[in-house]
Design a protein around this nucleic acid. Structure first.
Lengths: 346, 346
DNA sequence: CTGAAAGCGCTTACAG
DNA sequence: CTGAAAGCGCTTACAG
């Protein structure tokens, strides 16, 4: 076996033709003579020549890949089925376009550094805001991008559900069923959102909760409403349930901003001989598959995660191909799914 | 705002220096004078210059990304938590190396075509065999690669558990508890394995099952053992459970090659008022997180999925960096996890 | 401390 | 039908 990969020059020499002709053989065979073509293909076989996509892509000023900016490191991102499903959706479109999907973790904690070093035709991010550094970098680099669960801003395509309404709907259900002592488990803000000057999804959902609470003369600062912040892991859900039990505030319902956390709560409570929903009602957010597997089945807000990814990717490809996009800020439907974990205590 | 991305040439002109100097400013600032450096940085700001990683990478003959060859399209791959965890493991190492991870779906159904078009420093694949086309292509392209759950072959690093022993252990437990009428749900072979001349993980696990069965004077062809092939989806698990019920062969235990399928079975059976494990015992394979969430908790074979990914990635980076690797074929430990879904019927 | 030039592996407008 | 040459955006050995 040879020592280095065969290049177009090696093959050109071996065939006594120019690089141009080799290139044509592989990309526009109709432009060259049959004999030349046959010779080239035969020699290509002999020399194990496979055109190097890196060279081709560089010359064509494209990358044949789009990027997905992970909101956190891999472990924190891929352990959340909601995000995994968004990635599935993006992937479905990549499949159609024969593109690959580059997963981009923060480079030593910084999204912006990651963006600097990355080579993609376009980018999808979660939860970014027009005013963030990343957005400015992306613009300087002329990299098209769209954001999922980010705040709509000028000239930045976004895909969202109506988070405020969704969380309002969720809390409203909880209140309708008679719950007045409520523990809210919010999402710890991610890397993008650390900067408190930006409105985050967490904050928006809080506003939705508040609106529903107000209708019942309650508010987030009320003595009966308790707030917890957690990372989005099953274990975090178990820990927060332990805290809630220990705090002993007579909470009747735990409202989580994520199914993963809600399922963690259920798991902990069951392990510790509490009855769900008799001792504690629990609701979640996202409607991941496990929500309908866990016992009791989790009542939650369904959001179309795969579709979010698909629409984001479709939009991104429009941008990459230089086409106009119909709607800059797309809002997808959500729905309260009533299963077993929310009890009517009226 | 300008119309095109600023290049090194634009900046060189604006600063009245050579491209070399610009390049040094960004990569070896100690090699140039302070004044020149300051000027360059200031102009870079003004002109929104960010070095183009595509150019840099191409020049350096690297890609700063490794690839993961998806065994199927995105949806089928990412909906399996086992694979998602392998990807997490790979990602953990990418994080350390400041590399991105490129997910590569088959290009119109062909892994080989995908490989042809892709530009990565190295590749991790699942379930490939030395004799496959992909392997030959990868070699022609001088792309280092390692395979997870593939058949060990010369000069191809592999990461596996001992699948034969693991499935033997699993079946042995089932038999020890008195089960004699057993339905086995095998994995439908994936793209890589379609070619029946290659030994697949499915086949190896079957051999492990057989070995245990033989010890009890049973065999796969025995009248009491029923074989089903299914894709690795929850829905497929539900369907196969329906079939098993309908076939009415007095099966007492369903042995699945994947937790996803096993959980699908449980879900179906519960929905249809069967008791697990009283009416049917069920065991799985992988030990995904949901295995300990579903009721009854699933007894299964644990395999270290995240670690598989991590070791694969570490090995790949050794290859990329031209270092020697200690063990060509790594075998990781597995373990039978006894939970609630396998009943002793002795 | 700085620059001219060659090179990374291709594509393609242009000429013949 | 085929080729010489310029170009994609950088890096770097070499010279001064």
């Amino acid at each position: 076996m040879r020592q280095k990969r065969t290049t177009i020059i090696d093959l050109a020499k071996a065939c006594n033709v120019s690089k141009t002709t080799i290139s044509f053989a592989f990309n526009n065979p109709e432009r060259i003579g049959k004999d030349t073509y046959d010779l080239i293909m035969q020699k290509a076989q002999e020399l194990d020549y496979i055109p190097n996509p890196a060279g081709r892509n560089f010359s064509l000023k494209r990358k044949q890949t789009i990027g997905f900016l992970l909101p956190q490191h891999f472990e924190g991102t891929l352990s959340n089925p909601y995000i995994t499903q968004v990635i599935q959706g993006i992937g479905n479109i990549c499949n159609i376009k024969d593109y690959t999907l580059t997963l981009i973790p923060p480079f030593n904690g910084s999204m912006n550094e990651a963006v600097y070093k990355v080579s993609v035709d376009g980018l999808i991010a979660m939860g970014i805001n027009v005013k963030m550094d990343v957005v400015e970098s992306l613009r300087k680099m002329f990299i098209p991008f769209v954001t999922i669960d980010g705040r709509p801003g000028e000239n930045m395509p976004t895909i969202n559900i109506n988070d405020k309404k969704a969380s309002y709907d969720l809390m409203k259900e909880v209140l309708k069923r008679g719950h007045r002592k409520i523990s809210i488990v919010a999402l710890k803000e991610n890397l993008f959102e650390k900067d408190s000057k930006f409105e985050s999804t967490t904050q928006i959902r809080m506003a939705g909760f508040e609106e529903a609470l107000n209708e019942y003369n309650l508010s987030i600062n009320n003595d009966n409403i308790y707030i917890y912040d957690e990372e989005c892991y099953l274990e975090a859900g178990m820990n927060v349930a332990a805290k809630i039990v220990k705090d002993n505030k007579k909470t009747t319902c735990i409202v989580c901003m994520s199914d993963v956390i809600a399922i963690g709560c259920i798991t902990y409570l069951k392990q510790n001989s509490f009855k769900v929903p008799d001792d504690f009602s629990i609701v979640g957010f996202d409607n991941i598959q496990t929500a309908s597997i866990v016992t009791p089945h989790l009542s939650t807000i369904m959001q179309p995660s795969v579709e979010k990814g698909e629409i984001a990717a479709k939009t991104l490809f429009e941008l990459i191909e230089g086409n106009a996009i119909e709607t800059l800020h797309k809002i997808l439907p959500h729905e309260f799914i009533d299963r077993e974990s929310l009890k009517d205590i009226n």
